[in-house]
Computed example of a mutant assay.
Amino acid sequence: MRRGQLEEFKEIARAATKEALRSYHISEKVRASLVLGTTFERDTIVFELYIPADRPENGRVVSEARVSKETGEVSVLVFGLEQIERDRD
């Protein structure tokens, strides 16, 4: 990976995660406690937003953005959040 590429991938993940989370309610308390974790896989970088706990295994993952190192494509999964009902015109 070239210098600065991690920051590019992080921005891709940030923008996609922000868009994905627009449809969910996240309290200010939870929002303030979110932590970003990064895992490197062979062809993918995984960015997880999670709520930490007293023990790491008790933390709760809220979202996972997977960015392809090759193409920059991103996919986002959201876990355990209540979707906001929106009026449909």
Rank of each mutant, 00 (worst) to 15 (best):
V61N: 14
F9S: 00
Q5E: 15
V78K: 11
V61F: 12
E28A: 11
G72F: 04
R55Y: 10
S68V: 04
T39L: 12
A15V: 12
D89E: 11
F47Y: 11
K69G: 02
L81K: 07
T39R: 09
E73D: 15
E41Q: 13
S75R: 10
E82I: 07
V74N: 02
T39W: 07
E11Q: 14
R3V: 13
Y50A: 10
A20M: 08
G59K: 08
T17K: 02
F40R: 13
R2H: 12
P56C: 10
I51M: 12
P56D: 14
K29T: 11
Y50H: 14
V62N: 08
Q5W: 08
A53C: 13
T39A: 13
L81C: 10
P56V: 15
Y24H: 09
R60K: 15
L81H: 09
E70H: 02
K18H: 02
E64G: 02
E8I: 06
A20Y: 03
R2E: 14
A32W: 00
E11Y: 01
R88E: 14
K29Y: 05
D89R: 09
G72M: 07
I12W: 03
S27W: 01
V35F: 05
I51P: 05
G59P: 05
E48R: 13
S68C: 01
A15G: 01
R88N: 12
L21T: 04
G72T: 03
E11P: 00
A65E: 08
T38H: 12
G72P: 02
K69T: 05
S27M: 06
A13F: 06
S33W: 02
S63P: 14
A53K: 13
L77I: 05
F47P: 06
E41M: 10
A20V: 10
E73Q: 15
E57M: 14
E64F: 01
E11V: 06
E70P: 00
I45R: 05
I26D: 04
T38K: 15
K69Y: 05
L49F: 09
S23M: 11
R55E: 10
D43H: 03
E70G: 06
G4V: 05
E8T: 07
I12M: 02
G4H: 03
H25E: 13
D54L: 14
R66C: 07
E41A: 13
D43C: 01
R14V: 00
R88K: 14
I84D: 00
Y50K: 15
E28M: 02
L21S: 03
V61C: 15
Q83G: 09
E48T: 14
R22W: 01
V76D: 04
V76A: 04
V67Y: 03
Q83I: 12
E11T: 07
E8A: 09
E70V: 07
